[in-house]
Amino acid sequence: MNKSININGKNFELDVPDDMPLLWYLRDKLELTGTKFGCGMGLCGACTVHLDGQAIRACVMPVAAVAGKSITTIEGLSENGSHPLQKAWIKHKVPQCGYCQAGQIMNAASFLAATPRPSSADIDNAMQGNICRCGTYQRIKLAVADAADELAKEV
């Protein structure tokens, strides 16, 4: 079995138990703390990262299941916060407490990669699995729509 993993473009040897959740590998071993612990059951979305481009919940994903694959965390989305979603989050003043925002952004990035010109209903459907305790859903929706427009200009 492959015992390495690519995270944000860098290869790491997996020297932890196979059943360790990816979230704890990222946070405790690599000190990539942008990915947050929320519910621990894959329900809230605070721990969302990309596995080969697809949004997954890191709190319920064992490292053995991602060995040999590519993971992107919020730290790897862009080096300097220049991703259109990150810019839109600032423009629309999305965060209040900010705890869920990395997961929200990572879910939105995966969604927009697959659906570059989403409708309002598409955004609602795609983002419904990420919980925001502060209730900034309208700002999140505006930011996702704005980012989609910016990403469309880049194509």
Rank of each mutant, 00 (worst) to 15 (best):
A152F: 10
G45Q: 04
A58C: 07
A145C: 11
N125M: 15
Q54W: 07
I5D: 09
N130G: 06
G45P: 01
M1P: 09
T35G: 06
Y137V: 04
E75F: 08
G98R: 01
A102G: 06
A55R: 00
K29C: 11
D146M: 13
V94Q: 01
L26S: 03
I7A: 09
C39I: 07
A143W: 01
R117T: 11
S119R: 10
G53Q: 06
P17S: 06
F111E: 00
G53V: 06
I90L: 15
A145T: 11
A121K: 14
V16Q: 15
S120D: 15
P17Q: 08
A108C: 11
G45Y: 04
D18T: 10
V94F: 02
G45T: 05
M127Q: 11
N107P: 02
I71R: 06
L85N: 00
E75H: 11
N130S: 09
L30H: 07
P17L: 05
K10Q: 15
G98K: 01
F12Q: 03
G98W: 02
L26A: 04
M127N: 02
I56L: 07
P84G: 02
I74C: 03
V66C: 12
V16G: 05
T115D: 05
T73Y: 07
C44T: 02
K3A: 10
K91V: 12
A58Q: 04
G68L: 08
A114S: 14
M20I: 12
L151N: 03
D124E: 14
A64P: 08
D124A: 15
Q86G: 01
A152I: 06
F37N: 08
K3M: 11
L112A: 02
W24N: 04
K93G: 10
D146L: 12
I123E: 01
D52G: 10
Q54T: 13
D18I: 05
A88R: 00
C134P: 04
A121F: 08
A145D: 13
P21V: 05
G9Y: 13
G42C: 10
A121N: 13
C47H: 05
D18H: 14
P118W: 07
M61Q: 12
G38A: 06
Q96H: 14
P62G: 07
Y25M: 14
